[in-house]
């Protein structure tokens, strides 16, 4: 409950945060909502010598309509995503998934930037953003670079952000009327997903054009490419869903055996596709 001693500075701007990171060195951490980082520190599983608090950068908390995409500031909290009219209109799957995260307290503190930067394969928004082919804007002293979701999630707790960079914005393509669904399976309402399945579906003359993403089915959020391919080659939903666990590596622990998670991924994929098609 009591973390190791650490230094702490409040960043006044994104650039100030980068300056502080430069000063503290490579082991320092950005602190956003703190809802992934602080529990680890309290259990002394994470021991950063310094924290740079970006939680007060309100100019990085926004949801904007940029034409083809919605731009979301990295410090936007889950609660804001859940109730955003812009998102509900253009990317309702993001609002819905944000509303499935933890409990109201968590949703008021946790940020979309923290959720994806942490690199947790159980993060609901991570698999949803991967399914939507979102883009991540990474800021550093040498400027901004834009990373597509497909390249962003590297490994367990590892994303394409260096220790001297910071995620500032996420660009989410509008659904443009596509059907969608996020199926989160958990024992309790406030739990992390045992397995989650995101789907975005368009019908294009006869076959189904779908993007399917998986939560907690490997070391990173995953795309169920085999399902997507089966559907585009004309397989029906039930048959295609059987491919959901292809090339996955789900965890095997007391929250769910790997075998059970594999079966769940198939059931949830079927349900996600069915619901998407009905929308």
């Amino acid at each position: 409950m009591i973390p190791e001693p650490f230094e702490y500075e409040v960043a006044e701007s994104a650039d100030h945060a980068l300056e502080l990171l430069g000063r503290f060195g490579t082991d320092a951490k950005l602190l956003a909502g703190g809802h992934s980082l602080l529990p680890l520190m309290k259990l002394r599983l994470a021991l950063p010598p310094a924290l740079v608090d970006i939680g007060r950068l309100s100019d990085l908390s926004y949801i904007r309509d940029n034409g083809d995409a919605i731009a979301v500031g990295a410090l936007t909290c889950h609660e804001d995503l859940q109730f955003s009219d812009v998102l509900k209109q253009h990317c309702p799957i993001v609002s819905h998934a944000a509303g499935e995260i933890g409990d109201p307290q968590v949703r008021h503190r946790g940020t979309i930037g923290g959720a994806v930067s942490h690199g947790d394969p159980a993060a609901d928004l991570a698999s949803v953003l991967l399914t939507l082919d979102a883009e991540f804007v990474i800021h550093s002293t040498s400027g901004d670079r834009v990373v597509p979701a497909a390249d962003f999630f590297k490994d367990l707790f590892e994303v394409d952000i260096s220790t001297q960079e910071m995620l500032t914005e996420i660009r989410i393509p509008k659904l443009q009327g596509a059907g969608w669904s996020y199926q989160k399976f958990h024992a309790r309402a406030q739990d992390w997903a045992v397995v989650g399945v995101a789907a975005v579906v368009n019908r294009s003359n006869g076959s189904i054009d779908a993007a399917v993403g998986l939560t907690t089915m490997g070391d990173t959020p995953l795309r169920a490419r085999a399902v997507e391919e089966a559907l585009s080659s004309g397989a029906d939903v039930a048959t295609a869903s059987q491919e959901a666990d292809r090339d996955t590596n789900p965890p095997d622990d007391h929250m769910g055996s790997a075998g059970y998670r594999r079966e769940l991924s198939k059931v949830l994929t079927r349900r996600a596709l069915e619901e998407s098609l009905s929308r």
Partner: peptide, 27 residues
């Protein structure tokens, strides 16, 4: 919901409220 789960080494796996599943009103 609830069970204190141990591994073969006698380590408690359900060592916090995140993994020891106390139900809430929602359940």
């Amino acid at each position: 919901f609830e069970e204190a789960v141990y591994d073969d080494n006698g380590t408690l796996l359900t060592s916090s409220m995140a993994t020891y599943a106390i139900p809430s009103a929602a359940e």
